[in-house]
Amino acid sequence: MLLERISICFGMAVAMFAVTPVTAASSERESELHQAAALGHATEIRGLLAKGAAIDARNAKGETALLIATHANHVEAARVLIEGGADVNAKDKINDSPYLYAGARGHNEILQMTLAHGADLKSTNRFGGTAIIPASERGHVETVRILIAAGADVNHVNNLHWTALLEAIILSDGGPRHVEIVRDLLDAHADVNLADGEGVTPLQHARQRGYSAIETLLVQAGAKG
């Protein structure tokens, strides 16, 4: 009986010893993958994936290699990862995904790739907003157009009770880029009278801020108040 127990324990120890180097090597590969993504080293990424690095492994922040590459707008690195099957909707601990981050930051080449590889247009960030809302706020005209063409909901309401149209007014400087975004949103059938959580309409916000060009567009689109 004693010999049997010793034999079992010895077998378990041998098994653990055999597995540990593999696990350590795997963890090291993923760490190298994240580092390569941060630096935009597409060739190195391709090599690490060929060696078996887990493409969607997370770091301490919950970020995948693709999200890390997207942060720095490393287009070729992102391309290698996406074409290798990286999840374009994988979220980190603050609810950013490659798709959402690319949209919010106007990283249009990466955004287009995520859209071509299954981006979830309904996914939301930590503020409950879809990608088109921060894109509108930040004045990314071409990004907004890409998202509209992809079928993004222009009337989605985030946790602040704001739509893309409202953010393009409330959080903007009322300049030419935001005028174009308001025009594009209205052309895409944004609800011109959908008010914020306090009942203030887009037109009222535009008038309060003296954004006359935006006010004109809203009135032409049937805004009331």
Score class of each variant (00 low, 15 high):
L48V: 08
G84M: 09
L2F: 06
N89M: 07
V75R: 03
I133E: 04
W162R: 14
G222H: 04
A53R: 01
N108D: 15
Y101I: 02
H178A: 03
R105W: 06
A18V: 15
S27C: 07
A104T: 01
L185M: 11
L111I: 03
A77E: 05
P98K: 01
I68F: 01
L121D: 06
G225N: 12
D187N: 15
E4T: 12
L111N: 04
R209S: 09
G84C: 11
T20F: 13
H41V: 01
R105I: 00
I110C: 01
A190H: 10
N158Q: 00
E76V: 03
G174R: 05
L39S: 14
A152I: 02
V19D: 03
L81A: 10
L81Q: 10
A25G: 13
D196F: 08
Q204C: 06
A150F: 03
A42E: 06
D56R: 06
Q208T: 06
A213V: 13
A206W: 11
N155F: 04
G85L: 11
I181R: 10
F17I: 12
L166D: 02
N125H: 00
A37R: 05
R79K: 15
G174N: 07
E167A: 07
R126I: 09
N59H: 05
G174A: 06
E83Y: 03
R5Y: 12
V154N: 02
A69K: 03
T216L: 12
G175K: 14
S212H: 13
L3S: 13
G174L: 08
S26M: 12
R138E: 14
A90R: 15
L111D: 00
Q204Y: 03
A102Y: 06
Q35A: 14
A164Q: 06
G199R: 09
L186N: 07
A25M: 10
N159G: 15
S172P: 05
A69L: 03
R183H: 15
R46C: 01
D173A: 11
H41K: 14
L67H: 12
V182G: 08
S26D: 13
I181K: 09
I8A: 13
G103K: 05
H156N: 08
G199V: 09
T20P: 00
N158G: 00
M113V: 06
H140E: 07
L217S: 11
I148F: 10
V88N: 02
F10V: 14
V219C: 12
T124S: 11
E215Q: 15
G47E: 04
N108K: 05
A221H: 14
L217F: 09
N95D: 14
R79H: 10
R79W: 04
V19F: 14
A149R: 15
G85F: 13
T20H: 09
A104E: 06
G210R: 06
A15Q: 05
L66S: 05
V179C: 04
V14E: 13
